[in-house]
Amino acid sequence: METVNVTTTEKATAVPAVRKKRKWTADHWLAAAFLAPSVVLIFLFVYGFIGWTGYVSLSNWNSLVPDWSFAGLKNYLYLFHDFRFQADLRNTLVFTVLFIAAVIVLGQLLAILLDQKLRGESLFRNIFFFPMALSFVVTGVVWQWLFNPSTGVNLFLKPLGLDGKWYTDTNILGGFHWGKIEFGVPVAIVAVVVAAVWQMTGFAVAMYLAGLRAIPDEVREAARMDGATEFQLYWKIILPLLRPITVSVIIIMAHISLKIFDLIYAMTGPGANFVTDVPGVYMFETTFRGNYYANGAAIAIVMLLSVAIFIVPYLISSRKGGS
């Protein structure tokens, strides 16, 4: 009890002289000692290594032998003028938007569906959730075959007059010239989005379902008493209540999508004209297959910054709101 009081007085008093001294027992030191290794590891391996990568990205190390001489922003300038990297930025943007939109729409739809007290609900739930237990590599291998242009889903679609080239399609929809590339929606990306949505929708369903279960029945009853139809109930009352969950889903899906590597590497690779290439794949290939370490480091830093835009505000706000 004493410790609790001390903390509150500490916060409440403006004059430090009045402050009671906090009792740091041997146990507090022990607690700190148990936490210390993890803190050191995180500072070294996360923050230290990010700094190191940043340093590599400013160096001339673009061969097998490390060259630490300072290159300034040379590697970044190279990237932003690079056809492949420009294509990567377009693909990541398109992939992220389509992926998140589909996951949210499908996630809400399936969560509401599961909330209707259907018979066999737990079976349906397990069917929607199980892909999350799989590796992106497994997903990639299987969907690579399903979307293989000469087989797969095309065997169904061909009789309907649809004959997709899927991830081998090099067309860019709605394209206009931007830098060195054709900006627009690469058709091939859609195939990868379907696979990613198949794998990750369960995540959104689980979160929305938890949110739906947390809404008290009185809310529904009151709306029904007021004569709201079921559609109005969900559209006007339930979905707005789920908005904070949508924010979480967007942030979690965005960070997965911005750093995606394994699914695309296993399913399509960079693709012709880099129609399915993403920074994660480029970074891997240029660093570990091409030995362009400084370029790879620069890609990694760009990836980190794009993720940080979403994650840092999220972490700060959830710290203020939560606990």
């Binding site: 391996f45 996360v46 590599v56 960070h255 980190l304 700060i316």
Partner: peptide, 18 residues
């Protein structure tokens, strides 16, 4: 919060030093 940030980073950004 500082520890938590580590689970969101793209691991590409620590891979070369690692």
């Amino acid at each position: 919060t500082l520890i938590l940030f580590g689970m969101f980073i793209p691991y590409q950004s620590i891979l070369i030093p690692l």
